[in-house]
Write a protein that binds this DNA or RNA. Structure first.
Lengths: 235, 235
DNA sequence: GAGTGGTCTAGACCACACG
DNA sequence: GTGTGGTCTAGACCACTCT
């Protein structure tokens, strides 16, 4: 983790967040950054590549590398990342509180998507996500009980789910397929997220897989519209 | 365009498409590919980086680089493509009818996003998208008038906007940033899309750029929830 | 012309997976 | 241990932008 390029990437990201490099302005050239950090230009390029995939800067051939315009709190879709990680990258404070935690027999659709045997059990977590103190998303996560039995009992307490999966179970999530649509808030969702009943919400359903391509997690997320998603596309 | 890495990337992509490297199997190591193509490993890595962002392969540290499963679907989903093209890829019949077409002074936010001078004019197109005969999306597109003056007068008549831009104006769209959220239908949107007023809609705002990174098109799309979006993610 | 990013070389050592 | 990808060096030349 503590590679040179990732530290340079973080340093630059912090400078941008601190306003040292303003939106629309040019960051120092790759050559000068290489000199400043005492590395080669290739290493600086690797770091800047990371900033680009974060959406923080864009390159212009022959001209320079420019800080992107300020965005609202948004979730990047290009990378599979945890919620907390995402918000931190945008200079925001994210927290999570656990609403419920249980172990149940997998409902049909969940069983299908997680590729479980009939009757298999799942751990169900419900978490409320907050950004800068305001509730922004309600999340329901289904995990195969056989792979993470302890999670049925122990609270995550705001810890990153992906970190926990990796550190305690050796499960590394690598890919996901996400479906995104719009729904009207039910009375329960409205109450939890402090919006009107029927108000539009972003609904995302994500099936995450590990490095062996086995399903790890089915996550359903209801987000307020302010927490827009964004994605960069190439032709 | 004919850089070494892009040719190697294309060669490998063709080999995968031809089934020479089957899904789930390992492609040759970077060292051996470097030898085969007569380049350094860094150049091969650049090519493989491209295959990864296309979703064609995944790397596993210490193990190898493997051809992804479900590759056709991934390609279609993570690529910048037109609406008609998108629907065709899902086996559906898409059509478009033009609701309005005009030339106006760019409103402030549009001017900002398209990076226009104050007072610059834009062409505004409104189209209704239909799939299998049902209205599914209302689209409003803003284009800099100075770049596509004739579009203010001539109907597209269902022709692909991207094809028209490329063939008649030599503008090749290459990248886009898309923001996705949920909104409630206004009375006009409700009437056009045949949903209730206030019903949840998917709202996507897309800024498309050409190969010089200059803004080409700002597109706003209101879609019915049935027209969900799919995205594949990698960590 | 000067400065910027885009590509590429020819090596090196490290971290990880697997038999 | 061997082979794989991950990182990094110290240069070089080219393509593009801006003035």
């Amino acid at each position: 983790m503590s590679t040179l390029y990732s530290r340079i990437q973080r340093d630059l990201a912090l400078s941008i967040a601190a306003g040292e490099y303003a939106p629309g302005s040019r960051i120092p050239s790759e050559t000068s950054l290489a000199k400043r950090f005492g590395v080669t230009r290739m290493t600086v390029r690797h770091a800047v590549d990371g900033l680009i995939s974060e959406g923080l800067v864009t390159r212009r051939h022959g001209s320079g590398t420019y800080v992107s315009q300020r965005r609202q709190a948004q979730r990047a879709l290009n990378r599979l990342s945890g919620f907390t990680e995402d918000m931190r990258g945008q200079g925001r404070t994210a927290s999570a509180s656990e609403l419920s935690r249980s172990e149940v027999e997998a409902p049909g659709p969940v069983q299908d998507q997680l590729e479980l045997q009939p009757g298999a059990h799942v751990v169900v977590l419900e978490r409320l996500r907050e950004v800068d103190g305001r509730p922004v998303a309600l999340q329901r996560v289904w995990l195969p009980f056989s792979r993470v039995p302890e999670l049925a009992r122990r609270s995550l307490d705001g810890a990153s789910l992906y970190d926990t999966l990796e550190q305690e179970y050796g499960i590394r999530v690598t890919t996901a397929r996400q479906r995104i649509t719009a729904v009207g808030a039910t009375d329960r969702e409205a109450a939890i997220l402090a919006v009107a009943e029927g108000a539009p919400l972003i609904f995302a359903e994500r099936l995450t897989r590990d490095s062996n391509n086995r399903p790890v997690e089915l996550a359903e997320t209801w987000s307020v519209p302010e927490l827009a998603l964004w994605v960069d596309l190439r032709r």
